[in-house]
Design a protein around this nucleic acid. Structure first.
Lengths: 203, 203
DNA sequence: AGCGAATCTATACGGGCGTATAAATCGGCT
DNA sequence: AGCCGATTTATACGCCCGTATAGATTCGCT
């Protein structure tokens, strides 16, 4: 394992137990068994390392959700949404501490152009990917860059964000998957009106 | 004006243009024209001052919304919700920078017991107050401590939070007041079934 | 084996940080 | 006027921070 990998792993750990804002360069060195100067050498700065770590976390989450959403090839789009959110909600409790760091980073990004660009790019990629999954699940030849797919993707991602944050603010007040489904039904049919030919699920 | 007030005002200003995490004690002194030691004297610590400032911001927001929600004495509960959220959404753009600081504080609270307690108390008070408004708007003698009122209050507050955060993450993807109303209608009728029973969505 | 590049180590540096201390000043009260 | 507590001032202390530098080591290649 290179120092680079060690540092990344340590950053990931520390994001969980110290929080983005309170990690010092010396924390990272101690947790990784590497050297102070290695941070600068491999990542340019402490911020560079931390942001790289945030990115891996984000990608990890998207991977998990994407895999889950597409696990059942026969599922309708609405079922996939349900599955995704249910899984997301179920996992939130265990992600709590990392989530806090992620939210911290989100806030810092407002005044840190580099981090901001990085997060924006991450979101863009994520949405494109989700849009692709939506198109795939429609199975009628619609492509991922279809505006409707992009709209649905934005919506799905936004809901995941909203749920995550709400679980921080008020862990006991987060809606159940069934609550979500009721809301989803309304919003989904508003996006894909069930008039004429439509493959989207009926409830 | 006492140093206490000057510091509080400076903290409020700095929360907007430097962000919770990056305000230093010397920033506060410079912006307030006071003295380094006055922070400790009046607030115990820099964190004490910052948290007091956050509290005033929070209370200011609640005051504004409460006033707006109750402006029209003939409005139904659902109309009040609509008005409140619409106003909240309209104001979010102008609150953006303060909002970032608030979110930062929220994240920090996870590892800062004092701040955490303070925010929890703020939320509790806020919910009680909203529940009171809900009861008042029902106008049928229901009291604010009725479980249904409390549930509605939690929901309303959570939505405000969710909207705020989403406006940070993705300002262009925030739902319109009308989108909200559609979702609200579903959820509201699920909370207060117009007739006997079972209005919740099913798979 | 020998060389250059990549990587790692040890340490120094300057700076900014939050807080504490002690003295000066103010303000109300008798 | 004189006192006392509340407040304000000026400054010092010690700590820890992020980064840079320079030299040692390792690795890949011929």
């Amino acid at each position: 394992m290179s120092h680079r990998d060690d540092l990344l792993a340590a950053a990931r750990t520390l994001l969980e137990d110290k929080g983005y804002a309170h990690i010092t360069a010396r924390d990272l060195v101690a947790a990784s068994g590497t050297n102070l100067a290695s941070i600068g050498y491999h990542f340019g700065s402490k911020a560079g390392l931390l942001n790289a770590a945030i990115a891996t976390v984000f990608e990890e989450w998207t991977d998990q959700l994407a895999e889950l959403a597409m696990a059942d090839p026969t599922a309708s789009p609405i079922e996939r949404g349900h599955v995704t959110w249910a899984a997301w909600l179920a996992g939130l409790a265990g992600k709590r501490r990392l989530l806090v760091s992620y939210i911290e980073a989100l806030a810092q990004a407002e005044r840190a152009p580099d981090l901001r660009r990085q997060l924006a790019e991450l979101y863009r990629t994520c949405r494109v990917r989700v849009a692709g999954l939506v198109a795939e699940s429609l199975g009628d030849g619609t492509r991922g860059d279809d505006p409707r797919c992009r709209a649905v993707a934005s919506f799905v991602v936004a809901v995941c964000d909203g749920l995550a944050v709400q679980s921080l603010v008020d862990p006991d007040g987060v809606p159940t998957p069934d609550d979500l489904l009721a809301g989803l039904a309304t919003l989904w049919s508003a996006s894909f009106p069930p008039d004429g030919n439509d493959t989207s699920g009926r409830t």
